[in-house]
Design a protein around this nucleic acid. Sequence first.
DNA 1: TGAGATAGTTCTAGCACGGAATAAAGACAC
DNA 2: GTGTCTTTATTCCGTGCTAGAACTATCTCA
Lengths: 383, 383
Amino acid sequence: MLSDSERALARAVLIHGPISRSELTSRLGLSPPSLTRLAKPFLDRGLMVELDDRSDGSIGRPVRPLDVRPGLAHFAGVKITGEALHVVATDVRAGLLAYQEHPLGGRDPKGVAAEIARVVRGLGVDRIAGVGVSLGGAVRDGRVEFAPFLDWTDVPFARLVEAELGVPASIENDLVALAEAERWFGRGAGIPGFVVITIGAGIGYALVVNGQAVHSREAGVGLGGHIPLAASGPVCHAGHRGCAEAMLTSGSIAAQVSAALQRPVDYDEVLRLAAAGDPAATTVVDEAAAALGRLVAMAANLTLQPAAVLAGEGIGLFSLAEDRVRAAVAADRDPRAEPVRLYVDDSGFSAWARGAATVAIQDAVDRIDLDQVEQELLPTPAP
Amino acid sequence: MLSDSERALARAVLIHGPISRSELTSRLGLSPPSLTRLAKPFLDRGLMVELDDRSDGSIGRPVRPLDVRPGLAHFAGVKITGEALHVVATDVRAGLLAYQEHPLGGRDPKGVAAEIARVVRGLGVDRIAGVGVSLGGAVRDGRVEFAPFLDWTDVPFARLVEAELGVPASIENDLVALAEAERWFGRGAGIPGFVVITIGAGIGYALVVNGQAVHSREAGVGLGGHIPLAASGPVCHAGHRGCAEAMLTSGSIAAQVSAALQRPVDYDEVLRLAAAGDPAATTVVDEAAAALGRLVAMAANLTLQPAAVLAGEGIGLFSLAEDRVRAAVAADRDPRAEPVRLYVDDSGFSAWARGAATVAIQDAVDRIDLDQVEQELLPTPAP
DNA sequence: TGAGATAGTTCTAGCACGGAATAAAGACAC
DNA sequence: GTGTCTTTATTCCGTGCTAGAACTATCTCA
């Protein structure tokens, strides 16, 4: 559909917000005439607008930055877990417009697709140009090859959702989707490479190198989860002592503190107790923070990427014990190496669904056909 | 110099050996007419030749595979350690023509460059079209930013070698160079991503993802070296117990066995003793093999790459205890994940210098100017 | 000996790109 | 205010890369 240069322009304007043609020349490696030529059809068809950046005092002709037309389209993102649908509506830059959580009725693929359609329609957001779905498991070409939490094998789920909802659907592994979201619109924007680590009910791991997310079939399996992080420490259900799952999942942390206090406490309460100075909770949280730092350092060392984005619904741990995490990262990092830059995405559960929406947005950009833009988008012709 | 398509053609022919135009169309995504057009200048100028692939029994017009002209040029590769120069001469595909090792006289950059020139000239290989140099440290744009073993800081070494030898010189970090060699001509050819782990006097680590070696400033520092691999075990000189350096370097392994046997033994003897069934040597070797497997598994897990190339002068350990290594890899790998494929480059020290030569070859390809091919290369014109 | 298959070539039109010259629109000096 | 300077963007046009269509080459097989 789009030529390479057109697609590069579309992506750059989408990602880097209002941006002048002259800055695009250096960013895309194209000449000023090419930018004029490439931008024209996007402007003519109403996909982009030209802002008039009133003089900012600098010398020379004022810039006319290009931007995506406001309200051009909306997208939906759905993260499926074993128990619930997390659903967002976003603008074209994956900005949050609405977020809802719905318990998952059944696990039948067609039923889940129908439920997604119902929930997305119920968000009350119009002009949804695409829907993205993410889940834990192996995904390829719109098919779910394997999803353990849903007991799915080789399900053409994108097609099912498209049939129910009537808009293009995309599907991707949840961690790859999150990495894409961080890379395009999130904490990782502008960074050529970084690791993504999520903590919460499980441990998630993804990787961006040379400006590309690693789409490995490995991504579906919890590979980061059983890295050993502490010689002593609790044992995960797979029998690894002190592994990432044992040290960092909210369930394991809550269980440790519950055992120490001899009463059931949940993860959020553990964080509250630790913040209030409770010794048992503080011990467990500190150990977890050290383990998180060790995991970050090891990932940074072995991927050769000096940056990490931390996310997931359990990431409150980080703000509570940031110093311990940073100290542990530094301890396992060669002092001659660049320090690891840490970025925290504390948007919790909705981050997963925003990741799904990002995949839908990416696919929508690749689907643009300048010859077939809907009539309603075109500026009203002069009478 | 070359257009993108010309460069892609040159690389594909170099890497994938004799290859037909029709296979190149699918590999490069170009049309048959383009292949005809692109290949012509390379053939006219004597850089490539057309093989006549005598009928192999298949139906249709026989293919005329393109290949690099035999004996087109030679390259030199030099790996500098703190004590010695390892020097190879290779053909255009980094195939070994000669290998020599020379003790390093001094560490003065200009003196080392002169020594390299002398040794390369002494290899007795004519038509050297480029020389590649690799060393441990941080390298960028032909400059050595930092090389701990040589005490160099910001040395424009490529320029020094060029001045001494009179041929284009390239310089790269030793592990990046090795990764490039494995990617183009070695065990990793055709694999989109893999980790490279070397064992020997030190532990080396490099990474190829999405068909590109990771050129990180991190590559210069021994990041893989201090990953913890065994809860008990010896302590490295940085004070880490059971880290990769403590478990896997030839010095540490020899020291452990020497202490157990109460007499000095070197690494090669350790391997011989273990092969002969000596219990002390076997114990240490088995522990090292398990540690190596754990390192491979961890790297594969965190880089999401299900393949590893093992190299380095100490890699004899692998063949001796391959089963233990494989068992340890499997133990630290999620059973649902793809098993890690292991490739062993047992060419020892020369592998490092071949890596350096590979970088010179890559740079030479990028330097090709079809308008300025030396006259001697042109086929003799009809009288 | 001709049909079929596969590889590669020639011819040609389209078109993406950048260089050169030009226009636009402000700041600043006087 | 008017002219000069600076930076941004546009117009015009030649160059060169690309692929479609038609064609040629060279084999196998019946």
